[in-house]
């Protein structure tokens, strides 16, 4: 079992525990094994980077952790609750309360301003931040009333991060958050994620193809063919603004 950033004495700080997670798409000869038995334990507040080629199972794992997809076998325990046993409604509530998502293509609502895109989520949350505060956290205090069409890609992604963290989720799941951005813009987005992780202790998973990004993580999981093929613990996390690719 991969023990990610867990203390040696195994104190109950694990936010996720994953046991023998398997995901198969399709049946018979055309079956695709996206995950072939993944085990891991994620410590609360960790910054975890999932690294690996396309089709290695990173996104499938993230989707199941985030309650977007069902596992074929195995379990995901979130604070001791079996997420894999949740029905659709429970999964929705789980996403609503505990999980923040950041997408590769931002997925902002074009008809809402930056502030409104964030309010969209804070309106349905129990203990949200002020939308302006969330946007200030990602350095967009001057762009509150701009529409997505008036923002650059990096700015849009930072709005998406503000939207994801404004409800104070315990987990932030980011699927290729810099995939559509250039190096300079990308590092600013990563810096925003780093800030959130440090200031709020939000457990953060980042999927990437980009090995450089792994330097900013506490833990790095290497994926290949539906399995975790390796893992690495960084004693010192690199500052995102110092990264380049």
């Amino acid at each position: 079992m991969s023990r990610l950033a867990s203390q040696a004495d195994g104190e109950p700080e694990a936010i996720f525990r994953v046991d023998g997670l398997t995901k198969v798409y399709g049946e018979g000869e055309s079956a695709v094994h996206a995950l072939r038995g993944v085990d891991l334990v994620a410590r609360q507040g960790a910054m975890i980077v999932l690294l690996g080629p396309s089709g290695s199972g990173k996104s499938t794992l993230l989707n199941i952790l985030g309650g977007l997809d069902h596992a074929s076998a195995g379990h995901v325990w979130f604070h001791g609750n079996d997420v894999t046993a949740f029905g659709d409604d429970a999964l929705t509530e789980y996403r609503r309360r505990s999980v923040g998502f950041v997408f590769q293509f931002y997925n902002l609502v074009a008809s809402l301003t930056a502030r409104e895109n964030v309010s969209l989520i804070t309106e349905i949350s129990d203990n949200p931040m002020d939308p302006a505060e969330a946007l200030a956290l990602v350095g967009l205090e001057a762009r509150l009333d701009h529409f997505p069409a008036q923002l650059s890609g990096g700015e849009q992604q930072r709005v998406a991060i503000a939207r994801a963290i404004a409800k104070r989720p315990e987990v932030l799941l980011c699927d290729e958050p810099t995939g559509a951005l250039d190096s300079q813009t990308g590092t600013r987005v990563l810096a925003a994620l780093d800030t959130v992780n440090r200031e709020f202790g939000t457990t953060t998973f980042i999927i990437t193809h980009n090995a450089v990004i792994a330097d900013m993580a506490d833990e790095v999981l290497l994926f290949g063919d539906g399995r975790i093929t390796g893992q690495r613990h960084n004693q010192v996390r690199a500052a995102p603004l110092g990264l380049s690719w």
Binding site: G66, L68, D89, T92, E93, R95, R96, R97, V99, G100, F101, F103, N107, V109, A110, L120, I121, I124, R163, A164, K167
Partner: peptide
Amino acid sequence: ARDLASLRVLGFRRGE
């Protein structure tokens, strides 16, 4: 579709 699916991912219920 994409907006609405994104909202579902972000925790919006079906009815919302």
